[in-house]
Amino acid sequence: MTETNQAIQLNQVNYSITGELILKNITHSFPTGKITTLVGPSGAGKTTLFRLCNGLISRDSGEIFINGKSIDDYDPLVLRQTVGIALQSATMISGSIFDNLALPLTLKGEQLSEEDANKLLELVGLEKSLLYRNSKDLSGGQLQKVSIARTLVNEPSILLLDEITSSLDRVSQQDIEKLIKRINENYGTTIIWITHNLKQAYTIGDYTVVMMDGEVIESGPSDLLHNPKTNRTKKFVRGEIE
């Protein structure tokens, strides 16, 4: 066990694919109950970090602690329910919105009531009339909201969001930003949010972590993006590294 005021603690974590090091000796902590934004150019290893924390892949070396408990001590299924993940692709199973919202419970052999499904839609700001609509008929913004609601069914204490607003219009982006703030405030859920939108990272995040080439370059309160200390972060903020 380790410090429990840290939702996720990474200690000298390395991960490679076919010999290429994707994450290099990452040591970092994500505080419990806060919103941390994760920024960095494409190929920095941000999504890989999320996949490690959700247990979809395993590290080569180092230690990962989730809510103070080693990731190796978790049953993989319990870990994935504790650390929820929502991706930019907002993948849906074929069927209705209800089928998708019910999925986490269906997997546990339980059922989602229509009342609870409607509450979820309300929580993410979607019309109840969408409940039995086919998922193929929804817009990108609506799908993203369904994806977040579906992840929340497991009541994760940590929510990982991977570029969930990058393909959305301004209004949908703002809707989702408000939704995430609300989830964080109402449920105390730890949020870690990968975004390419630096303004969003600054406004929504309590903390920001900058990653490049598989390393954490800089981290601290979100205003670090206004006053970066390292040259690489300065270049990234100026848009010279993409």
Binding site: N54, L56, L77, V78, R80, Q81, G84, I85, S89, T91, I93, L103, P104, L107, K108, R150, T151, N154
Partner: peptide
């Protein structure tokens, strides 16, 4: 692969993930 990993990421078993 996305659909399989979606079910795994939500806490599904490999059998549930690969069922379809």
């Amino acid at each position: 692969q996305d659909a399989i990993e979606l079910i795994l990421s939500l806490g599904g078993t490999p059998k549930q993930a690969i069922h379809t």
